Simulated assay, not measured.
Amino acid sequence: MAKRLPKLPPLLQSKIYKTGQTRSANDDVIFQNRANRNGTVLIPFESIHLFDISVFTSDRFESGFIVVLSPEEYYTNPEALNIMKARKLKLGVNAILSYETRAQWNEFNPYKNKLTVAEKRTTPIDGHFVARILSSTSKDEEKIILGFNTSSCKGAGIRVAEYASLLTIKSCHLQLEYLYWLCYDSKEVALSAGMTESEIENRIAAITTACNNQKLANNERLYKTRIIDNVQNTICPLCLKKLSAEAFLLNFFDSSEKSSEKSDSDKDISPINLFYINQLKTGEFNHSPYNLAWGHQNCNMICKETGVIETIKWMKEVVVNTIIFNKDASN
């Protein structure tokens, strides 16, 4: 794809691009807001056993990592220092303490222990702790927000479950655009959005070629994963209805204005969200091709953070229990 491609409609381009960013986070947590997925990752200390020990001594994470401990773990867990030593973790270098409660602050006050505020994401991070302690109206105590709270360095890093390498992000972008063009009305919608027929054909040819070369266009695999149907149209992986390309070009305000007028038959043009077939999990790297899909916003709200597969198992259980209940109730 060395040749410059025709531009996609801005809303579609934005929707695809944003899949390479993490979810939003406010100032009351230590995570970055809408950061790139290949950024510095924050690994909870209680979860480090989920990762191979080589992860902590290699370049597995492109922008590095920071292990986050609670003050209790660091000061009262006898094994904590041994575990840190085995994984070459050191406070102030690639590990920090995170203060989240007033009790932690009072009992393990960082200043009394001569600790400094962490402000740097790259190793060595040149600081030992961050604090995100909410205010207490009952005792008139102001909140404590320290570390990674400047406009130039807001948030210590991203959730490790959301991580993906830059190469993986680009592969996902390619496959997600490929799925747009598999929508039954993609060409028609792109035309109405300002692309010409030749631009559409050039874009489809280039994206399809790139996906074939990178083994991202295995339609049989996409079908078995509930991402496309048996005629190779993109579908919602939960309800299995075909997706309209028009939904990709709806912004929030468009969908809000039209929501009151929609009938059930219009659900295929409801707002579109990114779906995870298998949910994001600490210890796994599930932001990857063939695990990402497009689907209805309402269906995605049902899945929430459990992923499609786990949601379907839960729905099956609900249906079976309902059938048994109705059968018993009719007797």
Rank of each mutant, 00 (worst) to 15 (best):
V68T: 05
L222M: 11
N230C: 11
S198K: 00
A164H: 01
N251P: 06
I204Q: 02
N113Y: 13
V308P: 05
T40I: 08
R121G: 06
L179F: 06
L176H: 01
Y75C: 08
T306V: 09
T123V: 01
T40E: 08
Q104P: 04
A245P: 06
T116D: 12
A80Y: 05
I66M: 07
I277M: 02
P9K: 12
T208S: 03
F325K: 10
K3V: 01
I228E: 05
N298V: 14
A247S: 15
K241V: 07
W314V: 13
S14Q: 10
E100L: 07
A193Y: 04
N278C: 14
R221W: 04
Y223L: 14
S265P: 03
K241W: 12
E119W: 12
A25P: 05
F61A: 01
M84E: 01
Y99K: 15
Y111F: 07
V320F: 14
S165D: 15
I53E: 13
G20Q: 07
Y276W: 04
S24W: 00
F51M: 10
F248V: 14
G92H: 08
L8R: 14
S47G: 08
E201T: 06
Y75I: 12
S255L: 15
V68D: 15
T150K: 02
I323R: 13
K85R: 14
L250I: 00
V308G: 13
L240N: 03
W294S: 03
V231E: 13
K258Y: 00
R159Y: 02
L249E: 00
N106P: 09
K143N: 12
Y276E: 15
A205P: 09
I66N: 13
L11W: 07
E188K: 01
V160I: 05
K267H: 06
K114A: 14
S259N: 04
S198C: 00
T57Y: 04
I235R: 05
G307Y: 02
T196S: 15
D59T: 03
P78M: 12
G157E: 01
D126P: 14
G295A: 06
K7Y: 03
Y223S: 13
V68F: 14
L167G: 09
L166A: 10
N82I: 15
F129G: 09
T19S: 00
A95T: 06
G20M: 09
T209A: 11
Y75P: 01
S186M: 01
F51T: 11
S63L: 14
K215E: 00
M84F: 10
Y74V: 00
S58M: 09
A103K: 08
G147I: 07
F275G: 07
I324H: 12
V308W: 15
P71H: 05
L12I: 06
L12A: 03
A205G: 13
S265I: 04
N26A: 03
G64P: 02
V320P: 11
A164S: 04
L8E: 11
